[in-house]
């Protein structure tokens, strides 16, 4: 009887695990994957791409769509420029953040903008391959034929108050991030897709100026 219960329970949870991400199976050796991902990501010095963002608020049947340009340059330099339907610029450079909303500029220091830093670190960590050493999250890795799916579950208190999890999909062909999906506790979701990627193109430093 006990064996039946154990087996049934195991089967149930296995089903739930795989049903969670349709078409994906758990990576058999996560440690090896992490090392492989980290070392391959280091070959990416820069990324230039377009992005689309789809924001789903749980109360709405409508989605809020926006799009823009994305740049990354090693180390720790990110520029996200929202171009439609609003102008919004986010630049991260070595822990400093510049936000430009229309004509207004806001500089966020590492001390005053801890939350903004943490949220934006997710993107930086993903693109430069340090996502698995982010202490704010525990990660699980799944895969299908074309990509890896990394599920990041927050452990840091302030991140736990915001996110249920963050799901990142990485392209197996170039180890670059395809989508970042931020799932909030109440069902709100922000999904960013990176398109038309150019790896290791020359990107001028002034794009990441925060002063």
């Amino acid at each position: 009887m006990r064996n039946i219960i154990v087996t049934t329970t195991f089967c149930f949870f296995s089903t739930v695990l795989y049903a969670q991400y349709s078409g994906y199976t758990a990576v058999p050796d996560p440690a090896a994957f992490k090392e492989q991902f980290s070392s391959n990501s280091k070959k990416t010095e820069s990324i230039q791409s377009d992005f689309t963002q789809e924001k789903t608020l749980s109360l709405l049947s409508e989605k809020i769509n926006s799009k823009g340009k994305f740049w990354f340059k090693r180390e720790n330099k990110v520029r996200m420029e929202y171009q439609q339907p609003f102008q919004y610029l986010l630049v991260m450079n070595q822990g400093e953040i510049l936000i430009k909303d229309g004509v207004k500029e806001t500089k966020v220091s590492s001390s005053s903008g801890k939350l903004i830093q943490q949220v934006n670190r997710i993107t930086v960590d993903c693109v430069q391959g340090t996502v698995f050493s982010n202490p704010d999250f525990i990660t699980k890795v799944f895969e299908n034929k074309s990509g890896w799916l990394v599920e990041m579950t927050p452990v840091a208190k302030n991140m736990k108050e915001l996110f249920k999890n963050i799901v990142v999909i990485i392209d197996k062909s170039d180890y670059a991030v395809q989508t970042v999906e931020m799932n909030e506790l109440r069902g709100d979701q922000t999904k960013i897709r990176f398109l038309n990627k150019q790896l290791n193109a020359k990107i001028p430093d002034h794009l990441f100026a925060v002063r």
């Binding site: 608020l57 109360l59 996200m80 929202y82 609003f86 229309g102 996110f163 909030e184 709100d188 922000t190």
Partner: peptide
């Protein structure tokens, strides 16, 4: 800055949601 959504729900309640452009509510 962010996006504010004001919506009248089917049960006639009113909802006001303020979300960051790039991140959480």
């Amino acid at each position: 800055s962010g996006i504010l959504v004001i919506k009248k729900m089917p049960d006639s309640s009113m909802r006001v949601v303020f979300t960051n452009e790039a991140g959480p509510v």
